[in-house]
Design a binder for these strands. Structure first.
Lengths: 190, 190
DNA sequence: GACACAATACCGAACGTTCGTTATATTGTC
DNA sequence: GACAATATAACGAACGTTCGGTATTGTGTC
């Protein structure tokens, strides 16, 4: 497993940016070499097992980021639920560059899916769902309502990213996220 | 432009199935050769300009299918709006094999997007939006409501496909489509 | 129907290029 | 001088593509 020196983080962020926008098969070592400023063989020094190693490092990195900056804050009951939710929206906006950047979840489950990657991503997705469901219940939803609301939120998130890439309308993402905020507030006032 | 003999349709359907699941860069001529049963050189007989030609044929084919089986029926005011909507859901379910098959819209706007393909797809998306908006107004939505409902429907559709690919839960798609049907009926009884 | 002949459909083998990867050499740092 | 980091050079394999040639089909003539 790659260790987390700050240089390494910069390197992985660069790889991440390519993988999320090109997918696994669309990402070439040459491209990664270009964007990192390292020669191809230098990349193999950091990731001896090659391309798949690079992908795994990225997926693990993103997984950590999600837990640290999204899921954990969502579960922090010392903060008001609506505040936690709006904090999450803010984090998400940054994470996806207001919808200009794609989601790894989407792009890595095309073609010949790698089971281990899929499992890791599915686990993260479930953890996110659970955290959201918890929050939903806190604002007064029934368990069933909360589950469906959570799933629908992430579906909207993923769908919005797809459509914004299609239309190039920078406002789509912001609009949908705003809509989700209002939707939560409706539950609050009930 | 490829003409529409029934053999050609079968050929293009086979190409379509690969492109939608592997994306442009993930699709190889060898794979297309395998799935069509034609040798690589034979594929070049049908599509002299190669891979890009094959993609264009597929995109055009899908565009025609969408207009013929989705958009045109949506605008047929001789049928009740709710019936037209549920017909569309049925068509969509078949088109995406209950969520097991992916959407070209998603997969072709990754990496180095081809402007002409993007434009064609964006036009289809807009046409679909307009048809849905029209239907929304028929069931009593305000223009603004109808526009937002349409956009949200397609976002849900795309998002659902992403999540179902992630979780492999065959019910996600059906559940979300059912939810959308209920949502429309709420407007009807108002 | 039989024949000639062009058009269409298909194939096997090879092309040059780029892929992911590796072996070897050079640099920088302690 | 040891060791990590980067670079140069090359590898076999797969990529998309092209070409020469063979079946198969369609068409006009007798």
């Amino acid at each position: 497993m790659a260790q987390q020196t700050s240089d390494n983080v910069l390197l992985i962020e660069a790889l991440f940016d390519i993988f999320r926008n090109h997918g696994y098969e669309g990402t070439t070592i040459s491209l990664l070499s270009e964007v990192t400023g390292l020669q191809k063989s230098s990349l193999y020094h950091h990731f001896p097992k090659g391309k798949e190693d690079m992908l795994k490092a990225v997926v693990n990195y993103v997984s950590m980021q999600i837990h640290q900056h999204i899921i954990t804050p969502l579960l922090d009951t010392q903060v008001k639920p609506e505040k936690r939710f709006s904090n999450m929206i803010t984090t998400i906006k940054a994470f996806y560059s207001d919808g200009r950047k794609n989601c790894l979840l989407n792009v890595l489950n095309l073609g010949d899916t790698k089971p281990e990657i899929n499992k890791l991503q599915n686990d993260d997705y479930c953890a996110w769902l659970e955290a959201l469901t918890q929050l939903g219940k806190e604002v007064g939803m029934s368990k069933q309502e909360a589950i469906e609301w959570s799933e629908r939120f992430i579906i909207i998130l993923e769908g919005t990213l797809v459509i914004q890439r299609l239309t190039n309308n920078k406002l789509t993402f912001a609009k949908q996220m705003e809509y989700e905020q209002k939707l939560l507030h409706k539950y609050l006032v009930q």
